[in-house]
Design a protein around this nucleic acid. Structure first.
Lengths: 333, 333
DNA sequence: ATAACTAACGTTAGCGCTAACTTGTCCGAA
DNA sequence: TTCGGACAAGTTAGCGCTAACGTTAGTTAT
């Protein structure tokens, strides 16, 4: 690996000062067009690329952002990450990806490490830290977009971006009610998850408004993956065999529920209707195809990155965004 | 966002010189235990964290690595990325994630940007650039692990990590032959993909060794996703209705094939047996569960990171690693 | 012709840290 | 007593870049 050429090398080769090269490279005024061209030619020829570390030290701008997700393997976050990365690429930013694995210690480590690296901004999904810690962390970064978490007192350099879970869950329940279901169960996600709480709330309020009672026996918690959805469904259907519809916390859980129904000989959608949440690619792959609340996750990622850049550049920007999910009716309900 | 405290702040507060604080923080000799303790206490109290940008400029080490993948949304790469990130976290490195989207321009941009950021190492999946360009790029980085690409002349700072595709494909074909199949088709991935070529080679050689002829009409190319697998299977089965088994380039394609068979009323595995490759989580979710060549992708990611660190630290390290896939026989074959 | 500008460059200092040298102090050996 | 060595510090220079001035020459206004 041969030594990188530096501004000084270019300056020497061109017979000008460092600053002239710097100005030429950064398209700043103070260099004649002719000279600029010949410097850029030299830059090309010598394969020079500015050292972003040195530039970062001088300007306190690193052109990099951090992205914290629970698990990049989960299609939900994979799609978001993809959107974020696309948005970053378009604006010549780089993305540090960090998984928290639902582990608060690792989450704090991630934040510390991103802060040490002086990222210009942070996209933080499903923050699990306590409120006080959250506010402390937010204060450390120049710009933050919080996904899947709300903030009662807005901060000028922070935007929250949430899916309208309450409305989504209500739409799902309405749809099931419209199909004649009267024993609608809800497979909830982890209780610490904000979206789980909101979806539960939407589920319950929709039932109440329809004049149905909320029955705790129809609610079952599980981890947000297929295997847990399967197990939880077995428990649920054993407890309440009269269930005629299941709203699942997300698509992975819904798929687990579908498999459990099949294992129990209960056909979907004939005897049990199932609705998921998120519309991950899997939803259209399984049979029957999953009716679910569609959210354009990749677009959310791009929106998040866009908003982050706006904050960083001081562009006016809402303090919160709410994304409306859309019910995609397919075969499972 | 209040100003970060610097070494100088700590030094002033402790009444010692910069270097003493630096030594204390970096566990270097030259500081008495007593003083070290009191400095560390101050560091804690003042919330000091070393500025990695400044440190990077001084030491030419950034404690960050680059990870280039075609698409982090693809479960194959998502798993690998997860392994890489886990390995990096364990050693206090950060990971820049970049998608190439199978776009050579974006791939080069990614390399340039990572180089500008002075990453200490690079994990590069499925490099699509031409040989000459590849060698040029490899020379620019201090350490590289190449996934899914080979190198005829090994470089001391580069390791290649490949799945033994040829053997995997042969195992699959052997299994199908053992089940009595005689018209085994192969849904190949993109021709530019090295693993596609190798799997094709394994497929053909296994047929030849079994005394069967290689029939180009049994080979069909497609993109490595479910939709393309579906379309390709329709084309294939239309052309050769006598096909009794399909080896797919990967699991996504296999799932597409399975759906196409179902759409055509051809039951799996009774009339068509299907084998995939990679064993992504989806393989056990769909019905019938997919027989596939299992590869522990997350572990590969960890291995890659481990090897990269070894190279960076000058630890002896093989110039190539070959991972053996394992046939997981499930329901589809 | 002279002051007042301005475009096109150069010089200096410093971002926060570390490598490498220098200084000072204490202690034991000759 | 003196000297050398070991240890615990401090001092200096520099990583590669940019912000903020300085300088020079050419141009315009009066």
């Amino acid at each position: 690996m041969k030594r990188r050429s530096t501004l000084a090398d270019i300056a020497a080769a061109a017979g000008v000062s460092l600053m002239t090269v710097s100005r030429a490279i950064n398209s700043k005024p103070g260099v004649s067009d002719e000279l600029r061209q010949s410097i850029l030619a030299l830059v090309e020829e010598m394969g020079y690329r500015p050292n972003q570390i040195a530039r970062g030290l001088a300007t306190h701008q690193t052109n990099s952002v951090g992205l914290i997700v629970p698990d990049n393997t989960n299609p939900f976050f994979a799609q978001i990450a993809r959107g974020v990365e696309d948005g970053a690429y378009a604006r010549e930013y780089s993305v540090f990806l960090v998984n928290t694995v639902e582990n608060p210690t690792r989450e704090l480590d991630a934040l510390g490490s991103l802060w040490e690296k002086e990222v210009d901004g942070l996209i933080w999904c499903s923050a699990r830290v306590a409120l006080e810690e959250l506010e402390f962390q937010l204060r450390r970064f120049p710009a933050v977009v919080l996904l899947n978490r709300e903030l009662e007192n807005p901060l000028s350099h922070v935007m929250t971006l949430n899916v309208h879970d309450v409305r989504g869950a209500r739409m799902a329940v309405s749809h099931l009610l419209g199909q004649g279901c009267r024993h609608i169960a809800y497979l909830n996600g982890p209780l610490h998850s904000l979206s789980a709480q909101r979806r539960l709330q939407g589920y319950q309020s929709a039932l109440t408004e329809a004049g149905l009672s909320v029955d705790p026996l129809l609610e079952q918690c599980c981890l947000p993956d297929t295997a847990s959805g399967y197990d939880a469904t077995l428990v649920l259907l054993n407890r309440r065999p009269d269930v005629d519809a299941i709203l699942a916390f997300n698509d992975l859980v819904a798929v687990g529920a579908m498999q459990a129904c099949q294992a129990l000989g209960r056909s979907v959608p004939e005897t049990v209707r199932i609705i998921g949440f998120d519309d991950i690619p899997l939803a259209t792959i399984i049979e029957p195809q999953l009716t679910t609340l569609h959210v354009d996750l990749q677009h959310i990622g791009e929106l998040a990155m866009q908003a982050l850049l706006d904050i960083m550049e001081g562009v006016a920007c809402p303090s919160a965004m709410l994304i409306e999910p859309e019910l995609f009716v397919r075969d499972s309900a």
